[in-house]
């Protein structure tokens, strides 16, 4: 009903979602020394929180706000501005498909249809087994490998719809083949 308002003043406890562990908070605190203000650490903090929880829950935002000494609304503001952060749970692996011009010219649209059909999910949705989520994003700066598809941290290059099955079958499809820095955990 058009005159009814969404109630933003209250939120049921169960919608707050999971919180951050002390270890995660410690990891975040390690970033404080890099910046003259604590607020500046919000992006690394959100990366760490999302890597730990799979998404940025309301409770995590509140706890981050406390940690960074800013109002929770400021954390929410940042979370919603950047497309990388999820505010609802996502699967263990995220398929991130480029939808910008070079990829689309080389068939990202068909690949998208293939993914949706194969996994049965649309954008920002998760398969029932909690394994895969799917989203598209603007140019991933790998247009020479168009169309490109990221699985968590791993970039798959020149992916044709017929490659999809092979990629999904590989359990290590999100594993990088170079040494990772441990500043951020793998998602």
């Amino acid at each position: 009903m058009s005159w009814q308002a969404v109630d933003r003043t209250r939120v049921p406890e169960e919608q707050l979602g999971p919180g951050l562990s002390e270890a995660v908070k410690e990891k975040i605190r390690a970033f404080f020394s890099r910046y003259p203000t604590k607020q500046a650490a919000v992006l690394p903090a959100l990366h760490i929180a999302q890597d730990a929880l799979g998404y940025v829950s309301l409770r995590a935002m509140k706890e981050l706000a406390e940690l960074l000494e800013i109002p929770p609304s400021k954390v929410m503001d940042v979370v919603t501005f950047y497309t990388h952060f999820w505010t609802h749970p996502k699967g263990r692996k995220t398929l991130l498909l480029c939808r910008s011009i070079s990829c689309e010219l080389l068939g990202a649209g068909k690949l998208k249809d293939a993914i949706r059909q194969r996994l049965g999910i649309g954008e920002h949705e998760t398969t029932p087994d909690g394994e895969y989520s799917f989203m598209t994003e603007e140019c991933l700066a790998a247009c020479d490998h168009a169309p490109c598809l990221m699985v968590n941290e791993k970039m798959h290059k020149c992916v044709r719809p017929e490659d999809l099955e092979r990629i999904l079958a590989d359990a290590d499809n999100d594993r990088l083949d170079i040494p990772r820095s441990d500043l951020f955990d793998a998602p």
């Binding site: 933003r8 003043t9 209250r10 109002p71 609304s73 400021k74 954390v75 929410m76 503001d77 501005f81």
Partner: peptide, 23 residues
Amino acid sequence: GAGELRVVDRGNRCEIDVFPGVP
């Protein structure tokens, strides 16, 4: 000095909002 109101999202999807539960 309370900072309850914020812009959320971006572009023409921008909205003004409060943090849920922090009116």
